[in-house]
Simulated scan of single mutants.
Amino acid sequence: MPRIPDVTLANPRAGRVKQVRALSGRSARAKHGQFLVEGPQGVREAVRHASARVRDVYLTAPAARRHPEILDTALAAGLYVHLGTPEVLDAMSPDAQGVLAVVRTDEPELGEALDRRRSPDRPLLVAVLASVRDPGNAGAVIRAADAAGADLVVLAGESVDVHNPKVVRSTAGSLFHLPVVTGVPLSDVVEGVRAAGCAVLAADGTGDHDLDDLLDVAGASPEGVPDLAASAAWVFGNEAWGLPSEDRALADAVVRVPIRGRAESLNLATAATVCLYASGRAQR
């Protein structure tokens, strides 16, 4: 176990504590180009996979003993590690569970992210959220995209801020595993992913194509039928109203997830998971 540093932060009303706490607000995040990562899972993945962007790591002594791998990785990467009292960490964030990091924002351009992930050996898989406002849903889709092996996620239009603490927590560290592009109009996203060779598939209950049928013919799809084995960008709509007609019209095909039972519909994160895994399976 690495040596636990001495406590250096004991005053929950100190200026540094207030500055860290302020990053829970969007204006402070935008001003400083930094955001909070709360809890051991998110911080663990940040120090492992994005250490160059981690500005500071904060732990309580009990948390440092419970999670020696976080402390060890942070110290090995030369990061600034601060030990604070439980009162200090609680003042910084009530959701920190004794472990917190301040991380610099990374805003990749869409074209740059697509170029970085493109490979002649395999198709691309992209998840696009169109005006998704709920932080938990956005985070869950990023996590699902990571699990399904997607190359990147795009939060298009008026979607929630990806650095909102609730989004960051909901990704469970997946935010640091794949690029996430934000602030691009959906029409520009569609243009960009098409230029990268992706078919644009809109997920919607009114779709003309059944997802199961597409899986049955993946790799040998007839003309006019989307091929799930090829590069694809899935577009998922808002939680409440789905994809409006003008957004569906941007897609090459509209695909429905079959409902076998009596459920009225699937929620956004579940539908996204099913679609992304279907493409991931077909592509592999």
Rank of each mutant, 00 (worst) to 15 (best):
V103G: 11
G261K: 08
L155M: 10
A101V: 12
P244T: 04
P222G: 09
S221M: 05
S51C: 05
G149P: 02
A172G: 02
V7E: 15
R48N: 15
A233T: 02
S131D: 15
N137T: 15
T60L: 10
A196Q: 07
V184Y: 12
V43Y: 11
I142Q: 12
A96I: 06
V154N: 06
A127C: 05
A130M: 06
A145M: 01
R284G: 15
G84H: 00
G98C: 10
V153W: 05
N11D: 15
L36E: 09
A199V: 01
T270F: 09
L79K: 06
K31M: 10
R29K: 09
D106T: 14
D212Q: 01
P86Y: 04
D161Y: 14
E45N: 12
A195R: 12
A233Q: 03
H32D: 14
A50Y: 06
L125S: 01
V99T: 15
R48V: 05
T270K: 03
V235T: 05
N238T: 00
E38Y: 12
R16Q: 10
L175Q: 15
A269M: 08
S279P: 04
G280C: 01
G242M: 12
I259P: 02
D216I: 02
A63R: 14
E191P: 05
V81C: 07
D188E: 15
A263V: 14
A272V: 06
I4C: 05
E87C: 02
I142P: 02
R21E: 15
T206H: 05
A269Y: 10
H82F: 07
E246M: 12
H67L: 07
Y58N: 10
A10C: 00
R104M: 10
V88A: 01
A46L: 09
R122C: 04
G157C: 06
L75G: 01
R44C: 11
A28T: 14
A148I: 04
H82S: 08
R116G: 04
P226R: 00
A218H: 02
G39L: 06
E223T: 15
T73A: 15
G242N: 13
T105F: 10
G237K: 07
W234V: 13
L266W: 08
L110H: 10
R248S: 03
G219A: 04
A77K: 14
V193Q: 04
V160A: 09
V190N: 09
A253G: 03
A203W: 01
A220F: 11
A76G: 12
T171E: 03
S279I: 02
P12N: 01
D208I: 03
D121K: 13
L9A: 06
G173W: 03
R256P: 00
E38Q: 13
R118Y: 05
A272F: 05
L214C: 04
R66H: 14
V141R: 11
G237V: 06
D121I: 00
P222D: 08
V257K: 06
G136A: 11
L59T: 13
V103D: 13
I259E: 02
P108S: 11
R21M: 05
V257P: 00
R122E: 14
A96T: 00
W241I: 10
V189T: 11
L89A: 03
V81S: 10
L125E: 04
L124D: 08
D72T: 13
C275N: 01
D210C: 07
G78M: 08
D115P: 03
P226V: 02
A61L: 13
D146M: 04
T105P: 08
G25R: 15
